[in-house]
Simulated assay, not measured.
Amino acid sequence: MIHKTAFTNQCVCWFHQVSDEYTLHRQTFYLAQDYFDRFMSTQSDVEKSMLQLIGITCLFVASKMEEACPPKLWQMAYITAGTYYKEEILKMELIILKALRWNLCPETAVSWLQLYFQMASMSVDSDLLEPQFPQDAYIQMTRLLDLCILSINSLDFQYRVLAASVLCHFLQQEAVEKLSGLSKDVLQPCLNWMAPFVETVGRCGRAATRDFASVKDDGHNIQTHTDYMTMLKDACKNEADSQFPTPPSSTEKTDAH
């Protein structure tokens, strides 16, 4: 399986930028990321020059699945700065759809997160079809999830486990275990792995809410972009430091004899 590399990380991070540019929903981004990962897992040798074409095609397909008014084909070609033409995107679209066997409606990590948070926020009289959770808190959660899925090791965990683990950093773990049906034994490895990412997000402060001229009540569901690559480098450094602690200086060492 071809895992995320520095180049594929940049491609997925580029998804964030395009999603922000065209005011696409979070689910659109996460569908595109899922298509990208699953397609790459079917390939044995992909040239770096093809990653952007694969990426924009995945986002194009995801947009048609999720958006009420998806970007046009020419807009997707335009965002590649003339690198690829409409015909190339259409050709790649068919290749990807065949590789995915037309399985285009998975439950993504963000859809699991929204479901869990909705359940945790509901009362007896709540309307299931209306968001019950505070939007600001949801935005903080999605930023952590956005960062985590850039890591190669996120592929070691099911989407529902990733989502529940994110929620555990905002709600009591016992409550998350109950509403998700996932045991502590299942969640703990992911929680341990996620700790360096939580540390990085914590140092960056709270994510700011944004207003969108074309979106009235759904702003929390719009995928936004920040400098995730810098955050990922910091999180990976935190991860490495936790595995290989810095040895004490000579002045801190004590004589064991």
Rank of each mutant, 00 (worst) to 15 (best):
M1F: 11
H3C: 08
K4G: 04
A6C: 06
C11H: 02
C13Q: 00
V18Y: 05
V18Q: 05
D20P: 04
Y22A: 10
H25F: 15
H25Y: 13
H25C: 11
Y30K: 07
L31A: 07
A32C: 04
D37A: 06
S41N: 06
T42H: 03
T42L: 05
S44E: 07
S49V: 15
Q52E: 06
G55D: 04
G55L: 03
T57C: 03
L59R: 06
L59Y: 02
A62S: 14
S63G: 10
M65A: 11
E67F: 06
P71V: 07
L73A: 11
W74T: 14
W74F: 14
A77W: 08
I79Y: 08
A81D: 14
E88Q: 15
I89C: 03
I89P: 02
K91T: 02
R101T: 11
C105F: 12
C105Q: 13
A109Q: 03
S111V: 13
L113E: 03
L113Y: 00
L115Q: 11
Y116W: 03
M122S: 12
L129H: 10
P131A: 12
P131G: 10
F133D: 06
A137Y: 02
A137W: 02
Q140H: 10
Q140M: 12
L144A: 05
I149E: 00
L150P: 01
S151I: 03
D156V: 05
A163M: 08
S165V: 10
S165W: 01
V166H: 01
V166G: 03
E174L: 06
A175V: 13
A175N: 09
K178P: 00
L182T: 06
L182F: 05
V186L: 13
Q188M: 13
W193C: 08
P196H: 08
E199G: 06
G202D: 07
G202W: 04
D211G: 10
D218W: 05
Q223D: 03
H225P: 02
D227Q: 08
D227R: 12
T230P: 00
L232I: 09
C236R: 14
C236V: 11
D241F: 10
D241N: 12
S242Q: 13
P248K: 13
T251L: 11
T254R: 12
A256N: 10
